[in-house]
């Protein structure tokens, strides 16, 4: 059954099955992140842990417009994208535990999830450091005449880095097929966008590089889908880069070390009223694409799957210390 959902003049073709899948993906990320926070307080997960709670519609919406063969590069707040890309939740959890059953044998942890078989290239933890690499990946595809695009996520903090500007110039100069996605959650760690950017309408920065750009309400899943489908079409037609700013908000602290001294609780509460998950659930209920009962069943299913992921991580094993220096160099002739 193909049903068109229309809100505020935006039309996006989402059939019932797809609608349920999208809801499931957002709910899964939310629950996975909450579980991760809980495991962090139990000291099962250590190091830095950056949660995606509140921003789910961005990853889910953007990635709905991508093909599995498209290269994906993300930030250190990448659990959501990794899950949507199809990395096994248990393998991700094991990675965050530091176990050798993790996607990077535990070497990377929360900030460095990689799965080459799924073209998932991190998990990059130097802000803006992956943008030039993403341009290079797109350049290689162009040179090899591969028919795929590269999608690169970054936060608005990255937009202030020199590497953002260098990467944008190169991408436009070389005309490579790349979707730049800014997850603008308004805070670069604890510094509000108004203290970071002289121009806070970030999409306007693309004009300086002759790159097409748009912005979208990142709390509105269907709007994100529509904007990203539009962006991907343009990239596919022109072979040129596109810049999409998704205006969103993280409901939780920057990382588990963050006391949130830089924003008012009230501001967080206001944004929580725009939580993408209840909003999308409500929409699906109104259009009778899903029932209350079905949502409850989804919740149950997700809880079970996440418990399995945790069990998998718990049962995981530590890499023997004598393997410590593996993966510094490949077998080679030098």
């Amino acid at each position: 059954m193909n049903t068109k959902i229309t809100i505020e003049n935006k039309t996006s073709p989402v059939d019932q099955e797809t609608a349920k899948k999208l809801l499931y993906q957002m709910m899964f990320i939310r629950r996975f992140e909450e579980k991760s926070a809980e495991l962090y307080t139990k000291e099962k997960i250590r190091g830095f842990l950056h949660l995606y709670v509140g921003e789910e519609a961005v990853a889910v919406g953007i990635m709905h417009a991508l093909n599995p063969g498209d290269n994906l590069l993300c930030t250190y707040r990448e659990h959501g994208q990794a899950l949507v890309r199809g990395l096994d939740p248990g393998v991700i959890m094991a990675e965050m535990y530091g176990k050798q059953e993790g996607c990077c044998k535990g070497r990377g942890g929360s900030m460095h999830l990689f799965d080459v078989s799924r073209k998932f290239f991190g998990g990059n933890a130097i802000v803006a450091g992956h943008l030039p690499m993403a341009v290079g990946m797109a350049l290689a595809d162009k040179k090899m005449k591969n028919n795929q695009i590269t999608c690169c996520f970054f936060g608005e903090g990255a937009v202030a880095e020199g590497e953002f500007h260098e990467a944008f110039n190169l991408a436009s100069l070389w005309q490579v097929p790349i979707l730049f996605v800014c997850e603008n959650n308004l805070y670069a760690m604890g510094t509000a966008i108004r203290y970071s950017h002289a121009q806070t309408n970030l999409e306007l920065k693309a004009a300086g590089y002759n790159i097409s750009a748009g912005s979208v309400d990142g709390m509105d899943l269907l709007a994100v889908i529509q904007a990203s489908q539009h962006a991907v079409e343009i990239i596919q037609q022109t072979g040129k880069p596109y810049f999409l700013v998704c205006n969103t908000y993280r409901f939780r602290a920057h990382s588990m070390f963050d006391a949130e001294l830089y924003r008012e609780k009230q501001e967080v509460e206001v944004w929580k009223k725009r939580d993408p998950i209840p909003a999308f659930s409500k929409l699906l209920l109104e259009h009778q694409l899903v029932t209350e009962q079905a949502i409850k069943e989804l919740e149950k299913k997700i809880d079970m799957e996440i418990q399995q992921a945790v069990d998998f991580a718990e049962a995981g094993t530590w890499e023997p210390i004598d393997q410590l220096t593996n993966f510094v160099y490949s077998n080679s002739i030098i």
Partner: peptide, 9 residues
């Protein structure tokens, strides 16, 4: 960085 990306790909 673009060289690194091209090498990865």
């Amino acid at each position: 960085g673009a060289g690194i990306g091209a090498a990865l790909n």
